[in-house]
């Protein structure tokens, strides 16, 4: 009974829209882009007949996976440092960590143009220092996309790992050390495994965010940096093909749900979702 409002919200804000979208994918689109409510498999046939869509989906999965990996490698030491800090510094650091997210995501992404561009900060410094003569191609390629993606998602990763680390009792590390484990061993045997739920939750979140973004490749990507969400955007906005857009979106939701399901199974549902909600 108590769950009724929650269930209501899930139905109203998640289930119904997804169902509406699924329905849309079976409708007909006339040459002018007007959607006619008449059952057809045209969009699904288009999706299934052309390996292009799955190819881009795979490419998107790889982008999200690599982004997640970089975030984990960069984010863990950051979160660990936060844990070791005295309380008031930590509060300040967490504030600083959040500060950029008060700025619009698009603006934050665009700011990289001024950092990575040929006349940007990095190239300017390297040139001033005499390290290079010609500007390095840091922009409009995979590198700049990953920079943008990691920048966008790192906060979520750090925060989740931080929460995971926070739940590790400091006494456990002390216990391991008194029993003969050196600091590094104590970390590997105690801290790391016990903070894994936070890392896993953060990874899931980052993966989903990274898989879904289309702004970053649009702004920071170069030729050919097209990902699945860009295809959905292309279908819906310039091509005015809502049924195809809906088909692509439904596939995306199903695939992501499957990824989450599989992941939850591997990571252990309980711990994972406890951390996600934490």
């Amino acid at each position: 009974m108590l769950a009724a409002p929650a269930v209501g919200c899930v139905v109203a804000f998640i289930l119904l829209p997804v169902l509406a979208m699924a329905l849309h994918s079976f409708w007909l689109r006339d040459p002018n882009g007007i959607v006619i409510q008449q059952f057809t498999l045209t969009s699904w046939r288009e999706f299934l007949d052309d390996p292009f869509y799955l190819e881009v989906l795979g490419r998107t999965g790889r982008l999200a996976a690599i982004t997640t990996l970089i975030c984990a490698l960069v984010g863990y030491p950051v979160a660990y440092t936060l844990i070791l800090m005295p309380d008031r510094f930590r509060a300040l650091m967490i504030l600083l960590l959040f500060l950029p997210s008060w700025i619009s995501f698009v603006v934050r992404t665009m700011s990289w143009l001024h950092v990575l561009g040929p006349g940007g900060l990095v190239n300017l410094l390297l040139r001033r220092m005499g390290v290079i003569e010609e500007p390095l191609p840091l922009l409009y390629n995979d590198f700049s996309i990953y920079v943008g993606m990691v920048h966008y998602t790192l906060t979520y990763m750090v925060l989740n790992i931080y929460i995971g680390l926070q739940s590790v009792d400091r006494n456990l590390v002390d216990a391991a050390r008194t029993l003969g484990a050196k600091g590094w061993h104590a970390f590997l045997e105690v801290t790391l495994p016990l903070s894994l739920p936070g890392l896993m939750a953060g990874s899931l979140l980052v993966f989903i965010l990274a898989a879904g973004t289309y702004i970053t490749p649009l702004i920071l990507g170069g030729t050919g940096n097209v990902y699945y969400s860009n295809l959905i955007y292309e279908a819906v906005i310039p091509q005015l093909d809502w049924p195809l857009g809906a088909t692509l979106a439904v596939v995306f939701i199903v695939v992501l749900t499957a990824v989450i399901g599989l992941y939850a199974r591997l990571a252990g549902v309980g711990t994972l979702f406890r951390k996600v909600s934490a």
Binding site: N171, D174, A175, A176, T178, P193, L194
Partner: peptide, 12 residues
């Protein structure tokens, strides 16, 4: 050998 207030057993 040290014994802590909250036992500090490794939960995993």
């Amino acid at each position: 050998g040290m014994v802590f207030q909250n036992h500090a057993l490794f939960p995993h």
